[in-house]
Computed example of a mutant assay.
Amino acid sequence: MRRFRFQYKETIVTILTENEEFYKTAVKAILEARSEIEDYILHNPDFFTSYEPIECSGGEIINRMCNAAKIAGVGPMAAVAGTIAAYAVEKMIDAGAKLAVVDNGGDIVMHSDRELLVGIYPSKLAFKVPPVDYLAICTSSGKIGHSVSFGKADAATVVARDASIADALATALGNLIGDFGKKELEKTVSEFYGKYSDFVEGILVVKDELVALAGNLPSLAFAESKEDLITKG
């Protein structure tokens, strides 16, 4: 397994794969996806600024983001990182990669032939993910990162089979987390999962010393965060 880092404008990614050729495939896909998004924003500025779903008609990337936004009740840019990561992983799979993991600033999409440990920053929790054909683990935070969140979660994580939806729903979930006690946090997580269980495998929220979860999540483990492994600017 090789680890690569790539940055272009706001996109900062970590890529795990077997060799440099698959890495190059991922980079090409990321640039293609960004080009489609940037071109659409140029002609449709509301796509970039809206915090609510909007009507839009574009290419594959744009349509994925808009569909996810409608499901989650957020703006389409809430799905941007997960969508770009998913597109890169799909192209790597098409090229023959057995290991294709793209972490786009905490929104992770993976296709893996081995078990992987995925940390939930800034907690000491991690998912032990067995070999998997395709899975998205997307996280929103009200305390870390440059993405907009109206909530106060350390981490609001959604695990799903569709990365665009996982990313948009992570934003929606994070927006709901206030200065909650244990019961209110658990109630919010339970109700959110009940509402979106058709779209997600499971959800997990970390708020200060509290943890609430629902659904079918990978096994949890304890892991110390390593700053050099965290994808951030």
Rank of each mutant, 00 (worst) to 15 (best):
Y51V: 15
L204C: 13
A100P: 01
G82M: 04
E32T: 04
I30C: 01
V118M: 14
I120K: 08
Y196I: 05
L229D: 13
F150P: 09
E191H: 10
D208L: 07
R3P: 10
A86Q: 06
V89A: 01
H43W: 13
A221G: 12
Y8T: 07
R2F: 13
D46M: 13
A33D: 00
T25W: 00
I61D: 01
L213W: 11
P76L: 11
G233W: 10
E227K: 07
T49V: 05
C138T: 08
E90Y: 01
D179H: 10
G202F: 04
V101N: 02
L213H: 06
K91C: 13
K28F: 10
R2L: 13
G181V: 14
L99W: 05
A126F: 05
Y87M: 03
N67I: 06
I61P: 01
E227Q: 10
D208P: 05
S147T: 05
G73C: 08
L125P: 15
A95V: 02
A136G: 05
S123H: 11
G233K: 10
I203Y: 02
V148E: 10
A95H: 01
F22G: 14
E209H: 14
D133L: 08
V89I: 00
F180S: 02
F192C: 13
A33S: 02
A214N: 13
I165Y: 04
D228T: 13
K70R: 10
V89W: 00
L210T: 09
F127C: 09
L204R: 12
P218V: 02
E186Y: 08
I177E: 12
S164V: 00
A86N: 12
I230Y: 10
A78V: 02
S140G: 14
A166H: 01
E191G: 12
I84N: 02
I93D: 03
I93W: 04
K152T: 08
V200F: 11
P131I: 04
H146L: 10
E18M: 01
G58M: 01
G145E: 02
A100G: 00
S35P: 09
V205D: 10
N44C: 06
V205N: 10
G96S: 04
V189G: 09
F22E: 07
M1F: 15
A172T: 09
A97P: 00
F180L: 09
G181S: 11
E20R: 10
L42I: 06
S112I: 02
E201K: 09
E184A: 14
A212C: 15
P76N: 05
P218S: 05
